[in-house]
Design a protein around this nucleic acid. Sequence first.
DNA 1: CGGATATCAGTGTAACTGAAATAA
DNA 2: CTTATTTCAGTTGCACTGATATCC
Lengths: 136, 136
Amino acid sequence: MPSWLLNQAAMPAQRLVADGLAQVAAHRSHFALLSALDEAGPSSQADLGRRCGIDRSDVVETVNQLTVKGYVERAPDPADRRRNVVTISRAGRRHLVRLEKRLARIQDELLAPLRPSEREVLVRLLSRVVDHHADG
Amino acid sequence: MPSWLLNQAAMPAQRLVADGLAQVAAHRSHFALLSALDEAGPSSQADLGRRCGIDRSDVVETVNQLTVKGYVERAPDPADRRRNVVTISRAGRRHLVRLEKRLARIQDELLAPLRPSEREVLVRLLSRVVDHHADG
DNA sequence: CGGATATCAGTGTAACTGAAATAA
DNA sequence: CTTATTTCAGTTGCACTGATATCC
């Protein structure tokens, strides 16, 4: 049953990612936010939440943690004083590179039984399923 | 990123299944237990939990619910008085058929964007990933 | 005013843990 | 004595909601 298989496969995926990131005291949301900031540049917390699919409340907490570690800076937006502008720091970029390398190894471990061409096929099929159910 | 795609695809899968079963006041664990009982015959709760990957505590509660609805019966095992023998009833089998039909439609909705041959490929690739990480 | 933002406290759920009672 | 089973109470992690203050 496909729905069962998807959940069974998502389980080790989640575990491998969580464990791998925990080894460097990181979390999925850390990677998501740092990635988004690296791609899109300084952003408001609401924008970050929308981009990453993370709840507004959880963005607050994640930005708190990343701020403590010096990976991002949070400053009021002079152009719109409701907003905080979150900016990735140099240390944040270095940390992001570390996380990316770690995650690459984890993808490899996750898809170990599949050849490269099969991994591509899987990614393509999953993408179509995900796209079909996007925001619906 | 494959791990992300897997989680994104598992999300609508989980939602569709949960919603579809909720319409008949059922739950994933209801289907899992009834299915296991239909396949393997009367079983102890510990066996059911191991088979279905459901925690021993949750088996207790699920059997409670199925008992109230008359879909299973719980009786002490005379051969091993630590155990309860859980048996599926005739109404339980009828209910299982309903759930199976419902779940078949849900699989179809989940994989709507894929052709039958593509669905097979997806299932095969996922199976290999799941097998590779089994019980590890 | 309506709408957006950030924050915090609290809710709901699902998976799990610990301990007790019973019995192999 | 050790291990297994069932049960219940409680915990934890997580996504989310509601309310509030602030501002466009």
